[in-house]
């Protein structure tokens, strides 16, 4: 990945996420975790219909689990009742065992993304950005003590990446 590509991903993350949409989860089951992160995202003014968001997220999970392995889950939906690309993150230090991840390991980070139906390109780029960024940071994100630290680590550009 080029530096400009990494910067672009960081920009996308910054646009979609704010620190107040990052929370540490108490719940330990998939359904409750998803419910908590949906509530968090629905607080955003971009989400017009919370029930529609909930329905869409669970409908997508019914098609196939969004646990992509390495402790990550990326539930994502496109819908008309979302004004712009937005994201919320749930952090579970204990891990969610019943998420049905690709590698059958517990999920620790849940990145919930909601995008307007027409924002397809940005939506795919954000999915790609989360996947590559979270995997690049490996376990570092789980070590963050609070939401602000998590946010700062996730959205920082390549020049100040911890790996450099």
């Amino acid at each position: 990945m080029t530096t400009s590509g990494q910067n672009e991903k960081a920009m996308l993350l910054q646009q979609a996420l704010t620190p107040d949409r990052i929370c540490f989860l108490e719940a330990a089951t998939k359904d409750r975790v998803l419910g908590d992160v949906i509530d968090l995202l629905a607080a955003s003014s971009s989400v017009i219909d919370k029930d529609a968001l909930r329905d869409a997220v669970f409908k997508r999970e019914a098609v196939m689990s969004t646990g992509i392995g390495m402790g990550l889950a990326v539930p994502h939906v496109r819908m008309d009742s979302v004004g712009e690309l937005v994201m919320a993150i749930g952090i579970s230090r204990a891990g969610i065992d019943d998420y049905g991840s690709l590698d059958d390991k517990p999920v620790h980070l849940v990145f919930l993304i909601a995008a307007p139906s027409g924002a397809h390109v940005e939506y795919l780029r954000l999915l790609s950005a989360i996947s590559s960024r979270a995997k690049a940071l490996d376990g570092c994100l789980l070590d963050c003590s609070d939401a602000d630290a998590f946010y700062a680590l996730l959205v920082q550009t390549s020049g100040d990446s911890p790996s450099n």
């Binding site: 196939m64 392995g69 795919l124």
Partner: peptide
Amino acid sequence: DRLKQCLADMEMGTWLVADDLLEP
């Protein structure tokens, strides 16, 4: 065209499904 957009990150192909890319 939508499928091509996934080529940049081949790994995405293992966890994205048709539902994620479809136009209603």
